[in-house]
């Protein structure tokens, strides 16, 4: 059984421990809630994929319609759009407060540590507060300058039902 203490990084330089992963994901969450998107982009590997699927089930979702399927270029374009001041859904966007918890290590895959967690975003705009709950799977890799995201897949609880215009980054 793992505990927060005995999974801290140490012996294995490649694998990422549970607490280290959680700490990274919390930091990423804070960056996103603050909408410091310029600080978010460097957290990614060059070939990282940010995926918000509609269909529930495994696979890389490349041949399915998704809510988002962003490579580095699309992430950059998205951040530019959200921060441009010309997108009425993002200027202002809803305010968000998010929590991540229920972290579970999912082993190594293609040189990355797989971390599964629960994420709850509460958003507020114009007299309305709403919740977006999701299962999130991170593929995290260790770089010289710290941890980076090789894949982040966010499966909304209601991914295959209606959602609404989302003017921020889940």
């Amino acid at each position: 059984m793992s505990t927060l203490t005995d999974t801290r990084p140490g012996n294995d330089t490649a694998a990422i421990g549970l607490f280290e992963a959680a700490e990274f994901i919390w930091r990423e969450g804070e960056i996103l809630d603050r909408q410091d998107y310029a600080d978010w982009l460097p957290l990614w590997t060059d070939d990282g994929l940010y995926v918000i699927p509609i269909e529930r089930g495994d696979g890389d979702h490349a041949d399915a319609l998704n809510i988002a399927y962003d490579d580095a270029e699309m992430r950059k374009a998205r951040v530019k759009r959200l921060k441009s001041g010309f997108s009425i859904s993002s200027a202002p966007s809803a305010r968000t407060v998010r929590s991540a918890s229920r972290f579970v290590l999912g082993g190594q895959q293609d040189g990355a540590t797989v971390v599964r967690c629960a994420q709850t975003i509460v958003e507020y705009k114009f007299e309305r507060t709403r919740t977006l709950a999701a299962d999130v799977v991170f593929h995290l890799v260790r770089r010289d300058d710290g941890i980076a995201i090789a894949r982040k897949e966010i499966l909304f609880l209601n991914s295959d039902d209606f959602v609404w215009g989302i003017g921020y980054l889940p």
């Binding site: 918000i52 041949d63 399915a64 319609l65 998704n66 809510i67 988002a68 399927y69 699309m74 374009a77 998205r78 759009r81 997108s87 009425i88 859904s89 993002s90 959602v163 609404w164 215009g165 989302i166 003017g167």
Partner: peptide, 21 residues
Amino acid sequence: LRLHEHFQGPMGFGTPDDAEG
């Protein structure tokens, strides 16, 4: 699919602004 995602849907570069309008 990628073109559709670019503009359409809850996080497209078009739809959320339409919906807001």
